[in-house]
Structures are given as C-alpha cells and as structure tokens.
Design a binder for these strands. Structure first.
Lengths: 338, 338
DNA sequence: TTTATTTACTTAACCGTTTTCGTAAAAAGG
DNA sequence: CCTTTTTACGAAAACGGTTAAGTAAATAAA
C-alpha cells in the first residue's frame, strides 16, 4: 500500500488537504496555478488515492458485482467480456462471484452486498433458486440489480434476455421440418425461466405441427455431468428413442455427442441434434452442430450499460429498460436430412 | 446501503461502539453475556458491517485481483473457477480485470492497485508485455503478486506454470512418431514465456530426432482472428506445406480446422493436428483432437492458495513457492497414422 | 468611496470501524 | 484487610479522503 496520502502532498505544497483534494478533482474553487502544482506533485510522488477512504466518505464504490452460476461455458465467458468492457470504459471495477448453482451460496453473496460493498449488481440466477427474498432485501436497501439471461420473473427490475420462447419454437420447428417425429428436449432445471420458456416454445411448435407431446419428452438434467450422461444414455437406449433432440444449455451438447458415439448412433441419420450454444467449435464438431447462438457478449454489455445508467441517474426506472436481444439459428450437419 | 451501523447497535444496547465492535469479533475482553446481547441485536437489525470503513482502518480489504488477457477460452474460464473456489473458502472477494492483450491497459490496471484496493494480485500477462516496471512498482508497494500460466520471468515471485518445455517436446515427439517430417508450430507471441518454452521443447524434439528445423516452421500468430486465418491458410497452401501442426494456444485449433475444411485437407491423412487445449469438445471434433491439456482449474487454485498463504503470513517468501503442474497428452484421431 | 460579490483558499466535521489506552470494579493473593 | 491482578468495559484517536461552512483578500457594483 502506498503511504503517500493527500496529507503528504498538502505538507509538501504548504496548502491544506482540502485544497489538494479539490485540486485533484479539478474543482472550480481552486486556481489554475494551484491545480498545476498539486497535479505535478501528485505525479512526482506517484500519489494514488485510497479507494476505501473515498468510498467510505462518498458512499459510492465504483464497483459492481457480477453473480453467476459458473464460468465454465462459453456463454458466461463471453458475457463477462461484455460486462467488463463496458465497466472498464465507465471506470468501474467488477467483482465476480460464482454460486456454483448453489442457492445458499447465492443468498450469502447477496446478503454480503448490503454492506455497500458494491454500487450495483448484475446477476444470472442459479438453477436452484427457490425464493427471492434476498433479492428483494437487496433492492430494498437501495442497490440496483439487473438480471441477464437467467432472470427472476418475480422481481421488478431490468431484465436482459434473449427471445427464449421463439428460440424454443424455432428449434422445435426446425427439427420437425427435418422430419423428426419424436423430439426430446433437455432441460437443465424446472425452476429456471429460460429453460421453461424454451421448453414452452418447443411445445408450441409441436402443437402447431400436430405432433403429440408427452411429458417424458422433456428430460430434466442436473448440474452433474455423470448423472446427465447416464440419463441421456438411458434416453437414447429406450425402445422408442427420440429421432431429434434439443439441448437447452451448452454443456449438454458434448454429453449428447459422447453418448451417441458410445452407442454407435449416427448423427444426423439416427438422431438429429441441435443445441443452444456459443461454442466456436460448433462448425468443426463431428458432425458440425446446428446451434441457436445467444448474443452473449451483447447481453452482458447491455446489462452493464443499463446498470450504469441507473447508477448515474437517481430516479431511473429500471424495469422499463428490459431488453430482448434475439438469438440466431445456424443450421449445420447435425440436423441434416439424410 | 444499509444504514444501521455499529453505532445504532451501541445506542440500542446502551454500550459503547468499542464494545460492540469487540463483541462482534468475539474478543476476550467482552463477557459472554454481552457478546450474546450484541449478536442477537445485530441479527435482529440485520446489521452488516461496512466494508470500506473496516478496510480503511485495517488496511486490508480481503479482496484480490485477477488480471487476465481475456476470458474467452476455456483455460481462463477454468482457472477463474479454481481461483474463485479457493477465495470463497477463505472469505476473500475477487475482482476481475481483463487486459484484452493490451499492454497499456495492463499497466493502468496494476497502477490502480497501488491504492490499496486489493491485498494481492494473481496475474497472467498479456502477450504484448514489454517491460515489467509496473509489476515491480506494485511489489515495491508491498502488494504480493503471483503469476500463473503466462509468467514474467524477470520478476521474483511465485509462478504457477505447467511443464511447458516438456509439453512442447512431447508434442513434437508425438508428431514425429506419427510419421511427420515437417512440423509447424503456431506461436501466439514471441515475447510470451509459455509460447517460447513450448517452442523450445518442440525444437529440442526435432533436434533429438534429427529433423531439420527452419525458422519459418514457427509461425507467429496474433490476437486477431482474421489475421490468423489468412496466415494459416497461406501456410497450408504453400508448396511444401507441413504434414504436422501444433497449436500452442486453444483458439488456434478452431482456426486450423476451419482452414483445413476450407482447403479440403484431410486431418490426419494430409496433415496431423494437435493443440494445447482444455476444450471439453476435443473428443467430439471432426476428427477428435489430440490435445495437451493444462490443469487449468488446479493452476488457478494453486496460485490462489499460495497468494493467500502470503497474505496470512507476514514474511512469506513467495518465490520459493513456484510450482509446475504437469499437463497431460491425450492422443486422439487428429494425429492418427493412416 | 463604500458595499456586494467573487475568488481562493482553510478549518473542521464526517464516513463507520478498529484499536490503543485508561479505568472502575471484581477477584485473587498475601 | 490491603495490595495486586484480572475482567469488562468506555473514551478517543486513528484510517484517508470529502465537503459544508467560514474567511480573508481581490474585484466588481453602487
């Protein structure tokens, strides 16, 4: 920690600390000549202001928190990039917290924010989220929160999502058009809004094309790789296995491919596969994967931009700022009609 | 921001703020009965201590910074997971800063740390790093820094790396054993220690197997997708194109595959490909990719653990704690002998 | 010339904790 | 019973900035 403070500068320059402080802030109360002297001295002594002192006094920290389930898949990686690039531009710092899909952890993290550690919060909830009291407590204590991707429907605030329902619909319809009669949908959690919306869209597509839907067509995966592997294996070994499959989250794509390799199932001849994904490797998979790609970077950046607006303007109404940024379908070989 | 402070508690309980503070810290100076009263009241009023006040006073922030080039590839994603899991365990908070491979940005970020914003720093340098004065300045101001993966050789501190030289050697040797005679090595920067070490290992492997090495066999890529694409395309279109290629960083794998698809080159018949990578999709690529996989999560966790040791013990000698965690070669179809 | 205003500062309170030092009262020791 | 130690707490000074309020001197207005 640097031990030269505003006081050091004040003594060297024979002025008061107030003058130094104001000079560094380019206050109109200070003469040009004094400002110059102060700045020069600050430069020379490598003065760097103590963040905690200023945060304590100003009750602002120029820091935001990003709360995520995990950062292993490319969606969140890209989203972080988006968030960070806006934050850096605005001079904000970003704290990362991972919940590892654990609700209690998420609760503890949000509670900690009431200390005023951060000025605002960006969040994508865990799949396990049960209730949202902790989010409301946080809002009540005056800290704005913006959701992106995995949102809490119940909370009144800005939410940045992609067109999940439509994407589910598009996915379902695409497989139907490719000739699938029995389409499974891999969900990641029954309490997750994005998963449900995508599933709803998929069901609507089935309905619109007179394909009958069975409750077992929606397969609930978990945050447990081994569990998912056996679950999907069982699904694809069943007597009337699906001829089309939609992975609602990225990591399930790899699992599906591995199971198919293991069982000797040919994609797309035996089963057509498509997934929600941001992987750059989608085109070079075996076979190349048809994907619905979310605008991850843009969603992160948009969420951050809105949060900063709220931080800069006092009576900003966050909930009016919700945005839907559409995803795009890229058709590749994994759903080819052979 | 919560407006109930230690003072509120003190007034309600008719004791001094000092007593409350000590009681909450379980100080031996406070009687059991008083501690109970204080804790109960704190619980009731949802007291949460102001971080900035405490950081200012204690000159400790319980926060570390992680400085990375970017978080787009899976190496850094996994490393962040490793870091965060240890930090959460230790009650530390983690700030993320991305340099986007920009040296000036890195410099500015490190300079800011002199404010005492963080207690310690974990860093992987940008490929552009030219000198290290800013790192030394930071160290001089008493903030410990631990490098992982992309280290600065010149700085005396703990460095967590993988066995880059050996991996380069293993990669080169593997391709030689698979019958390659002309092996290209894609580097990401000539000023990056990991890139150079891997390249050195590769050259040693060539030398040990009496394969002649030309300077043009090492191809310097940049942090520019389009540039790399044309560069690699040119390489694979040349009259005597390589029959083996090693990608020293993950993102180049996709580029190589795309170029091969574009040029109609068959992997592994026309050219064998292997890469340094943590992609989970490696086994399902077309063809499945032979990889050298770095222990990303472990490296992040190890770096964090060492940093926390240094933060907890005063005269801890960081440089003695350097570690090398070996990577593993996984042979797949992209280097198969056909 | 006198009064009002502006300029360029200084003083001091304040943000919420932590921590040193001091001190009564209680307990222990002689 | 008197002295010493321990226990349990309080007063106050930090930590390093920010900012409201005050003030002397310079300038402008009357």
């Amino acid at each position: 920690m640097s031990n030269i403070t505003i006081k050091t500068l004040a003594e060297k320059l024979q002025v008061s600390v107030a003058t130094v402080s104001k000079a560094l802030k380019d206050s109109h109360e200070i003469s040009g000549i004094t400002k110059q002297r102060v700045r020069k001295m600050a430069e020379e002594l490598h003065y760097v202001p103590n963040l905690y002192a200023s945060s304590l006094r100003r009750r602002k920290s120029k820091t935001i928190a990003v709360v995520l389930p995990e950062v292993a898949d490319s969606y969140f990686s890209l989203a972080i990039n988006g968030i960070e690039s806006i934050a850096q531009q605005k001079g904000y710092h970003v704290l990362i917290y991972l919940t590892h899909e654990n609700y209690l952890k998420q609760e503890a993290i949000l509670k900690d924010f009431q200390s005023g550690r951060v000025d605002g919060v960006l969040m994508s909830t865990t799949a396990e989220t049960v209730d949202h009291c902790h989010v409301q407590d946080l809002q009540a204590s005056g800290i704005p929160i913006v959701f992106f991707d995995r949102v809490c429907e119940e909370i009144e605030t800005a939410k940045i999502t992609t067109n999940d329902f439509e994407c589910g619909y598009i996915a379902g319809e695409h497989l139907i058009q490719q000739g699938c009669k029995k389409i499974a949908f891999l969900s990641i959690s029954s309490s997750l809004s994005i998963s449900n919306k995508r599933a709803d869209g998929y069901r609507q597509a089935l309905a619109d094309h007179q394909i009958k839907f069975k409750a077992t067509d929606i397969v609930n995966c978990k945050n447990d790789e081994a569990f998912n592997l056996t679950l999907i294996k069982k699904l694809l070994q069943s007597k009337n296995r699906p001829d089309g499959i939609i992975a609602s989250v990225e990591k399930l794509n790899t699992t599906i491919y591995l199971v198919c390799m293991d069982l000797g199932l040919n994609i797309p001849a035996d089963i057509k596969v498509m997934g929600f994904s941001n992987q750059v490797s989608a085109p070079i998979l075996n076979p190349s994967l048809t994907t619905i790609t979310q605008p991850a970077f843009e969603m992160g950046a948009a969420a951050a931009a809105i949060l900063f607006k709220a931080l800069e303007k006092p009576n900003f109404i966050l909930k009016k700022e919700s945005m839907i940024i559409p995803s795009v379908l890229t058709v590749r070989d994994s759903t080819k009609n052979v």
